[in-house]
């Protein structure tokens, strides 16, 4: 057994218990690892043998089931802030981008569009604007600490997930219900295809951020093994 083994095992168990933005999580784990290595060095300088020093440093640090929830609280706060900011920008941003696309080429002719497509278009716009405003409220609430941070994160996750699914579902239904108009739009306006691709990528990014926020906000008791 090497002298860093108990430290490595403890840090690995801690890392497994944490969920949140990758860069912040890695930075937090690396900082803990550095601190434990410092503690081992200090105990070795004080006369302990390396194995005893590592075991003492891990005991001083505290059990994973006690420390991980405190670190998870921070990761949840940062994930919630990111997800809310993404929703705040992406939902209205997509509405504005599609508005530019509509205005740049051949517009849909009202007679060619199925009524359900018009309803879906309106539903998508309203969802995106309301979602963007809700994202703004969550960002402000998080900064001003008006509500518990885990609640902000959970609500941001729900908002991203539900808003993303409603917008994507409405967009698909809108185009499927008026296939001729959609095909003609793609054929005549060179911006439409890139706009579909960007919208698809944004949908995936929003859903991913929503999933991560919900996972980060979940309370769980991690194992020390």
């Amino acid at each position: 057994m090497t002298r860093k083994c108990p430290v490595g095992q403890h840090v690995a168990a801690l890392e497994r218990a944490l969920h949140g933005p990758g860069r912040v999580r890695r930075s937090m784990v690396r900082e803990v690892r550095d601190g434990l290595d410092d503690a081992v060095d200090a105990y070795c300088r004080g006369g302990l043998d390396p194995d005893a020093a590592a075991a003492q440093a891990v005991r001083d640090f505290g059990p994973v089931h006690e420390i991980a929830p405190q670190m998870q609280e921070e990761l949840a706060a940062r994930q919630g802030r990111r997800t809310a900011a993404l929703v705040m920008v992406a939902f209205p941003g997509l509405v504005i981008a599609w508005d530019v696309v509509w205005r740049s080429g051949t517009a849909w002719h009202p007679g060619e569009i199925a009524p359900v497509s018009l309803v879906m278009a309106r539903l998508e716009d309203v969802t995106a604007i309301v979602g963007g405003l809700a994202g703004l409220v969550l960002v402000v609430a998080g900064f001003l600490r008006l509500v518990p941070q885990r609640l902000v994160t959970a609500l941001a996750g729900l908002l991203a997930g539900v808003g993303g699914l409603v917008c994507a579902g409405a967009a698909v239904l809108m185009n499927v219900a008026s296939p001729t108009s959609s095909a003609s739009l793609v054929a005549t306006n060179p911006l439409v295809l890139p706009a579909f691709v960007v919208s698809g990528v944004m949908f995936l990014a929003i859903m991913r951020a929503g999933f991560r926020a919900l996972r980060a906000a979940r309370r769980r008791v991690p194992s020390d093994e």
Binding site: M28, V32, G35, D60
Partner: peptide, 30 residues
């Protein structure tokens, strides 16, 4: 840095602070 903060807390308290050192890192991020 983190461990220097832990050492300073223990030195200033004369070793009386018996806090799991792991609690300092999330507090720093908070």
């Amino acid at each position: 840095h983190g461990y220097a903060i832990i050492e300073a807390l223990q030195a200033r308290s004369g070793g009386a602070l018996d806090l799991p050192t792991g609690t300092v890192y999330p507090a720093l991020r908070r």
